[in-house]
Write a protein that binds this DNA or RNA. Sequence first.
DNA 1: AGACTTATTTTACAGTGTGTAAGATAATGA
DNA 2: TCATTATCTTACACACTGTAAAATAAGTCT
Lengths: 199, 199
Amino acid sequence: MNPNKDQTDPRVIRTRILIKEAFIELLTEMDIEKMSVSRIAERATISRVTFYLHYRDIPDMLEKMADEMIKEIEEALRGKPVNPDSREGADWLRLEKLLEHIAQHASFYKVTLASRKAPIFTERLLSMLTEIITERYDHVEKDSFTYKAGIQKDIAVWHRSSALIGTIVSWLRQDMPYTPHFLAKQFYLLTSRKQDTNF
Amino acid sequence: MNPNKDQTDPRVIRTRILIKEAFIELLTEMDIEKMSVSRIAERATISRVTFYLHYRDIPDMLEKMADEMIKEIEEALRGKPVNPDSREGADWLRLEKLLEHIAQHASFYKVTLASRKAPIFTERLLSMLTEIITERYDHVEKDSFTYKAGIQKDIAVWHRSSALIGTIVSWLRQDMPYTPHFLAKQFYLLTSRKQDTNF
DNA sequence: AGACTTATTTTACAGTGTGTAAGATAATGA
DNA sequence: TCATTATCTTACACACTGTAAAATAAGTCT
């Protein structure tokens, strides 16, 4: 396949959308173990052979879909780039943006992130969040609580990034009972120590 | 099979150990997608038919192994039962006990928890930890920071339990660079607000 | 519009794994 | 020693995989 036409040929676009939709549908209906190229092709109303023209196998498909997901999340967060000098308020807005994006595509994220059927999606998002949190840690937390309390940077990063992704997953699993704005604010309260001075 | 003899017949015990060891070995070598009953039986030096005498299929095997894991963790934590009146110090000891148990069986937990190849194990442990944290929250945190700051109980529980399991997973993934004692203490510092008064 | 390029389809094939059945063998326990 | 039963051997029908070749259909370009 011509790598340039890949992204523009309407037949290719159509097929990939059909595969993605079929995959999401099937994943809501069954466990990942029962997923097969045959089933996906059948549901997508394409030939099984066509699947192999796009993906080597199912793991390859998952990987490429995860790549796409990360790209879309980065796209959604654009406009509020990672700013080393930003204060917590700015990051809180970025989290709200992330949650809004997830809420807008809830049917996709509920299956890929919240179902835990295909760990690769959660893994990718965790990596991304870990990067952001690691960067942020050096720049804006030099004088924060954790810094002073003698907490190892890597442990603090593990703690924060997993708390973040875990909270998002739980929120999705329970069908988003809070608005992105409210949850982002609560998360900010839980993570930052700013509020300590109020009590 | 006689359900009573199931647990005592040395042939049964031997076979299940062989299957478990073969499974762990194979999972370190390949992705879960490539796992098959044939491979497990071959590695375990048992007949493929024998596998089906113990487990319906691979998902069934994973489920039963996860049950076993939870039992063993509960066993390891016994002696320090969930005490509603316990102060943070006691819980900190329980976390240290958990980490010690995991460290002692690192080869098993590195594959089941840290590899993220079989999400069921992480899911089960998360459920267990969520239960413990939920119970604890009502009893010992009535006057804690989160309570006063107007943070929803469920959000706080999501945050804490996912931070806990995520930290454990990251610690395992990086081959446990800290002692259980040290990590438990750091986790305690990160979660509790007691230290705030020191600064 | 017509000629091209190429994505998709159809059909076919060899290979691997699944889950179950029957009877033979070997280990266990009383 | 003898009855029990876990394991093994062999066999079978079925499903899914990954690839190939040639035909068809859809898109692109002048």
